[in-house]
Simulated scan of single mutants.
Amino acid sequence: MMLRTVAFALILLFMTFDGAAAQGAQMPVSQCQAIASAIPKVTFASFKPFETAQLSSAREEVKITFVGHSTYQIESPEGVVIATDYNGAYRPPVMPDVVTMNKAHSTHFTLAPDLGIEHVLHGWSEVPGDKIEHRVMVGDSYVRNVTTDIRSYGGFEENGNSIFIFEIAGLCIGHLGHLHHELTESHYTEIGRLDILMVPTDGGLTMGADSMSRVVQRLRSSLILPMHRGGSSLDRFLSMFDGRYDIATARDRVLTVSMRSLPRKPTILVPQGL
């Protein structure tokens, strides 16, 4: 009887450990989210200069290309290709491994993506109002989302938009999608640190320039990449920023960036083609 009890206990222990391990494997730990509540117990990493020197620049670099409208192509050091707000019309030069979408307008999604795309991540749930949650590890790239509300039929649809966050080579890259309202404290906590921010600058289809600029300034990103609309709308957005920000136009179509190359002063970099 005692042997049977011990055996049963061991089985339960194995099942609990196995389940916890599986859950841990499915939910990678974000390096960009705020962890203030864990600070008393946290162990801070220590990077030795010699170890850092061993990293080749190629392993640290992320390539970002503006494709059109709200679509950016992000390529990781291991060659994982991601396309944001993919709609099938603005196609990256190569077949992406991951595409993210938002449903505000048909220019931000497609229900018939190329069958060769392995990971198609919708920023909305099929059940209106429900949250969609993505925590996906593809090669060296971790993709997650934070939902926001969206305007719909004269009102608001809960959780109809997603801010997608791409954690690659130590960088935290955020794409605001079709953001329709200023973010709450809860949103900022979920988002965490963003080194690079892709922000719609249409001045009204998403949010006005003043509201959008407040979101940008609160996120404190090092590099801000406009999208969605250029011209006078972009000019209005840029006018919201004072001397604390540098404003420049990209000289190259492909932006190569790493933790080491981030600008010391926050910079708004207008991509070619916007």
Rank of each mutant, 00 (worst) to 15 (best):
N102H: 06
S211T: 07
Q26C: 05
R220G: 00
F8I: 14
A7R: 10
T84M: 00
T256G: 03
T16E: 03
M240E: 15
F241V: 10
G19P: 00
E60T: 06
F8N: 14
P263N: 03
P96Q: 03
D242V: 05
P28T: 14
G68L: 11
P113W: 15
T16W: 04
P271M: 04
I82Y: 03
H122R: 12
S261L: 14
S76K: 14
V254H: 07
T5H: 11
P263H: 04
A248Y: 06
S222E: 13
V29T: 15
S125M: 02
P40W: 11
D130N: 04
G204H: 04
E157W: 02
D97W: 14
V199W: 03
L234D: 08
P93H: 07
D210N: 10
S221H: 10
E60I: 00
V6Q: 08
P92V: 06
S57T: 12
T267G: 12
S221G: 11
G204I: 09
T184Y: 04
N159E: 04
F14N: 15
N102G: 08
G88D: 14
N161R: 12
V98G: 13
H122K: 12
M198Y: 06
P49I: 01
Y142D: 06
H181P: 00
G154W: 08
R218E: 13
I11S: 06
Y86S: 01
I168E: 05
T184D: 08
S106P: 01
A58S: 10
M240P: 00
K48W: 03
E78H: 08
E182F: 02
G68Q: 11
A34K: 11
A209Q: 06
G154L: 09
V215D: 00
P96T: 11
N159V: 11
P200C: 03
P263W: 07
S261A: 09
D202P: 11
Y142T: 09
L274E: 07
A9C: 13
H134T: 14
L10R: 02
L225F: 01
T184P: 05
F166Y: 07
L121C: 10
H119N: 15
S261E: 06
G230C: 03
E60K: 14
V29E: 11
Q73N: 03
V67K: 02
G154Q: 07
H178K: 08
M101F: 04
Q23T: 07
T43I: 14
H181Q: 12
L269P: 10
P93M: 05
